[in-house]
Simulated scan of single mutants.
Amino acid sequence: MAAEGATGTAGGRRGTLDRRTVLTEALRMIDADGVESLTMRRLGRALGRDPMRLYRFAASKDELLDDVVELVLAELEVPSPAAASDWEAVLRRCAHSFRELALAHPHTVPLLVTRPLSTPLGLRPQGTLRPLEAILDLLIGAGFDPKGALHGYRLFMGFLQGHVLNEVQEQVADPDETDDLLRLGLHRLPSKEFPRIRALAHELATFDGRAELDEGLDIVLAGLVQQLRATT
């Protein structure tokens, strides 16, 4: 969409306002204070513009959130494999790239997982569909039939989205506390009602997201390899 013209102010002329500037500021606000902090009024104030002018770039807050998801996913790359046999390595790199995005923008993770599901495929921002297209192309090129490639994509992304949701929602009550029960606030749980969770205090406190991701990928990719072998 075309940029909005510069507007005179007491301090001089402001720069042009374009879609990327609006979305970048919206993402900054979400990163700082969460999705609930984003309103057209607050966004307009942050940009020094009448909020009504922002509707040139997004017709509603829902559309604005979809566009923020597209902006974040634009940073995710699914590289082309050097050979068809490299598809597993490519998916591993893609998974780690997605995790890094999630850790860089933790407040957007619920959006990355849920916003695409609220809109039919063909009506979503095209940028949100590029990972789907790229992974389908990768898997079909590796020898999966189209239906199997779609199944592989769903399995891969379902695991990946669940993993990052769990990782970014891990909360530490007292980072300076050395006792794992106290550090996670698990001492507040009645021991008779939650014995299993309390017993896992150390494992919960020492969660290694990167290692857990790789362990899960081992299982997911092993299943896809078996599926591919069954069809060839």
Rank of each mutant, 00 (worst) to 15 (best):
H107V: 05
G141W: 03
L129W: 05
P81R: 07
C94A: 09
E133F: 15
L150F: 09
G127P: 09
R99Q: 13
L138H: 02
S85F: 05
L117H: 04
R154N: 11
A134Y: 04
S80V: 14
K147A: 15
R124I: 01
F98I: 03
V78C: 10
R93V: 10
L150N: 06
G122H: 10
L150I: 05
L129K: 03
A104E: 12
L132E: 08
L91Y: 02
A134M: 01
G148F: 03
V113A: 12
L111D: 06
W87T: 00
V90R: 03
A83V: 05
L121Y: 11
A134K: 10
D86P: 04
P120W: 09
L103N: 06
P79G: 01
P79S: 00
D86I: 04
L139H: 00
L76G: 06
A149I: 04
L101W: 05
C94M: 04
T108L: 07
H107E: 02
L76E: 10
L138K: 01
R130F: 07
V113Q: 07
G122A: 11
L76P: 08
H96V: 13
P110G: 04
T119S: 08
L136Y: 05
A89C: 02
D86K: 08
P110R: 00
P79M: 00
G152Y: 02
Y153Q: 03
V90Q: 04
A149P: 03
P106E: 01
D137M: 09
T114E: 15
E88L: 04
E100W: 11
V78M: 09
F98C: 03
L155T: 14
T128A: 12
L129N: 13
W87P: 00
K147W: 11
L129H: 06
E88A: 14
P110D: 03
P106H: 00
D86M: 04
P110Y: 02
L117R: 08
P106Y: 01
L101Y: 03
S97R: 08
L111C: 12
G143V: 04
R130D: 08
P131F: 01
S118A: 13
P125S: 10
H105M: 08
R115M: 15
Y153R: 05
T114K: 09
F144E: 04
E133L: 13
T119P: 00
Y153A: 02
G143Y: 03
H96F: 14
I135A: 05
L138Q: 05
S80R: 15
P79F: 01
G152I: 01
K147M: 11
P146A: 12
P116T: 02
I140Y: 00
P81M: 06
T108C: 13
G127R: 10
P110A: 00
R92A: 07
L150P: 02
S80W: 09
T108S: 09
E133T: 14
D86E: 11
G152F: 02
